[in-house]
Design a protein around this nucleic acid. Structure first.
Lengths: 333, 333
DNA sequence: ACTCCTCGGGAGAGCGCTTTCTGGGCAGGG
DNA sequence: CCCTGCCCAGAAAGCGCTCTCCCGAGGAGT
């Protein structure tokens, strides 16, 4: 049988109360008593049962993390960022994915209701914003890691600069003399798609080179759409000397289709991605891309939530961590 | 205030015992009583507190997952595999990484001692095997996801076929007429490195083409080592028509260095990787590689652990899920 | 000498469940 | 008619902590 606080109390000839006080550093304790208790704890190798502490305190020192998928290229970075902060503060991370759709969300909801965790970090699975908002309004502390630049209303969130990031990409392409860019977007319903499209287009427009609608191809963030868009442009005889993709995966697809067509990257066509997933630096050629600070966003989200547990108010304006621009060989040789 | 079992009991005019029985389907209950209680539960939206249930039952319905890092390319797959199984069985996953070295492990140890979870899935962080073995011998149910083909003694584990996988790669290269392969290994201390080297070498040896030691270059599983090894071979005038890398990342590096030297992949040099990380299918050229079933390993590990909770014995022989071989354009055009 | 504090520490009531033990009806058997 | 058993269901004792009271002793103040 595992030893309990009562065993320690008995061995140290004090009450459970005193042991608890030593454990939590509360109340006035005689130096020698405290030392004696500590010695016994050490000797017995006593560790308070998390289960009992959770019940008694009404908190779990665990935060939930809800993500749509664990296999997205940048997900590991976000998780690592959040995990680092949580672990450093001695919090646990309970992971939930939504791989099984409705059923997943139902089970997640049950965990929420059962108060399995004190707060939530969430990368919103598509279509669950209403539900998430409901949880928030019911008082579940949460921070949204907003990868899609959605309007999340009053939910505290961490975002990045999609508009500025895309603008930086446009400026870079203009600087290297590319005047006929193609744009491969993400899904139209995402805020980030709109922001990136707008940011990119505005710079070209300001330069007196507005981008035709036919140069903006609707994508889906997958590899295939990048390749398809490029092929389609070629087939329709559209001339282009650059491709700006709304994420790195589609940029990889674009590079592939460009090279398949006998064109060179970057000499004939420069390619810029978005995200800066770990592979971007190692693709062939290495990909120039807008770096989204996923890890920092994970860290910031975790820190914000923990600060709230300490009494800080949750910010009602999104926290924005700027995206940066990374130049690699897919645009300059 | 959240509603408790007592509220339900009062509203249904029964005892807490009866409510508990309805909740857990234990004991003989009168149909009408049970229905009445269920109706009240529904009406009040009552969900038992996980914290209280955990304490009372002495179990948490949570399994810990310890991993060295969340940013490794194949980690997402393992996690997703494990998460899918756990969630389907209504278990939670508490995630631990070891990003902060000693300190991380200390905190992890505290969680173990505090019995924060019922069992553990672990991808062994290097150098912690002894500690993990200690936990196992102390009775913590666990399953090791053995990515390095280590000898884990009596710890139940899930592994794959490193020797056979590498042999398949060798056979493929022989079939396409490559007689002068280079091998870029993983760290020498890993079991998988030894297995992969042996499996690959044995096939070439059987074919009457034993591989010189100078053709086997020590790598470290990073992109750089693949490039370095290739450059080194070129500099030293070593002729080669194929490169077998012990993981995909180093294969990417190798491809890069080969192309930089003006050689073509696969025409001049065929490249084979190991792992089949998600990017392998999308690299330029797509990478022929040994597919490690990481997701299936994650699933199997979770299933094995859960089966043990249901009373099944943990297997004392490693469960092996075979690696498969995937041919792509880096070896055949 | 008496009251008032302060300080150290104990008793015990929760926290919200599960589970064992107990017991009241009621039908069937002797 | 009484005893056995079987169904149901309640009382209450945990599970292992935290935390609010409360108390006794010793020192300061008057």
């Amino acid at each position: 049988m595992p030893i309990t606080i009562a065993d320690v109390a008995a061995a140290a000839k004090v009450s459970k109360t005193t042991v608890s006080r030593v454990l939590n550093g509360k109340g006035e304790l005689d130096r020698s008593t405290a030392d004696r208790v500590r010695a016994v704890i050490e000797e017995l190798g006593y560790v308070p049962s998390a289960r009992a502490v959770n019940l008694a305190r009404g908190r779990t020192r665990v935060v939930g993390m809800l993500v749509p998928s664990l296999t997205w290229p940048w997900m590991g970075e976000v998780l690592q960022g959040a995990a680092d902060v949580l672990e450093a503060e001695n919090y646990g991370m309970l992971l939930f994915t939504c791989n099984r759709g409705e059923e997943s969300m139902r089970q997640f909801a049950a965990q929420v209701a059962a108060k399995s965790f004190d707060g939530l970090l969430v990368i919103e699975p598509e279509g669950t914003l209403d539900y998430i908002a409901t949880l928030h309004s019911r008082g579940l502390p949460m921070v949204l890691i907003d990868d899609r630049d959605q309007q999340s209303g009053q939910i505290p969130s961490i975002g990045t600069t999609n508009h500025l990031g895309a603008a930086a990409a446009a400026r870079h392409l203009l600087e290297i003399g590319r005047r006929q860019p193609l744009v491969v977007t993400g899904p139209a319903r995402f805020g980030c798609t709109q922001q990136r499209t707008a940011g990119f287009a505005s710079v070209y427009a300001e330069a007196g080179l507005p981008i035709d609608d036919e140069r903006i191809m609707l994508g889906d963030f997958k590899v295939g759409c990048g390749a398809d868009s490029v092929r389609q442009a070629i087939d329709s005889g559209l001339a282009f000397d650059a491709v700006f993709c709304h994420n790195d995966l589609s940029a990889f697809g674009a590079v592939q289709a460009i090279q398949d067509s006998g064109r060179r990257v970057p000499e004939d066509v420069a390619v810029v991605g978005f995200d800066d997933i770990p592979m971007a630096a190692h693709s062939q050629p290495p990909l120039t891309t807008v770096h989204q600070p996923m890890r920092e966003m994970g860290e910031a989200a975790a820190r914000t939530l923990l600060a709230h547990f300490e009494g800080a108010a949750l910010p009602n304006r999104p926290t924005i961590i700027p995206a940066t621009f990374t130049v690699r060989a897919s645009t300059v040789s």
